[in-house]
């Protein structure tokens, strides 16, 4: 699993008197009765900004392994040497967005009209 938000945190369930931690929705990821795109942890499936990814980090060819190598995925507190199964992708280096020059926000705010509106715009600009 690689993600943009902290996930691992043991939780005490006072009523049961036991420690529990995230199972990565084991009941979903192997469930063949639900559509394949839903076979991921609920937090990954429902994340509104798609900040979380789920996959097999042990497989170097998996999509999450590729994301980790492309976007410099790191461990938190590496000095603790816990070899966590969660990787955190570095912000602001999103290769999937491609060339930043190709996407200009200023142009969106001031669009170039085409067609009849474009013809009117061009002629009025000359006046």
């Amino acid at each position: 699993m690689c993600l943009g938000l902290p996930l691992w945190r043991p939780g005490n369930v006072p009523s049961a008197g036991v420690m529990k931690k995230c199972t990565l929705c084991v009941d979903r990821i192997y469930n063949e009765n639900i559509p394949e795109e839903d076979r991921v942890p609920a937090c990954v499936r429902s994340c509104p900004t798609n900040a979380r990814f789920f996959g097999d980090l042990a497989d170097p060819d998996s999509e999450v392994s590729r994301l980790v190598s492309d976007r410099d995925g790191v461990d938190l507190m590496p000095e603790q040497r816990t070899r966590p199964a969660n990787k955190y992708l570095q912000p602001g280096r999103q290769s999937s967005c491609g060339d930043p020059e190709a996407f200009n926000l200023a142009e969106l705010a001031d669009p170039t009209p085409t067609g009849i509106l474009g013809w009117i715009d061009r002629n009025l600009s000359r006046v």
């Binding site: 938190l76 507190m77 000095e79």
Partner: peptide, 11 residues
């Protein structure tokens, strides 16, 4: 907290 700092905790 030894070698661990807010920088290593958040990277």
């Amino acid at each position: 907290t030894g070698q661990s700092t807010l920088a290593t905790a958040t990277r």
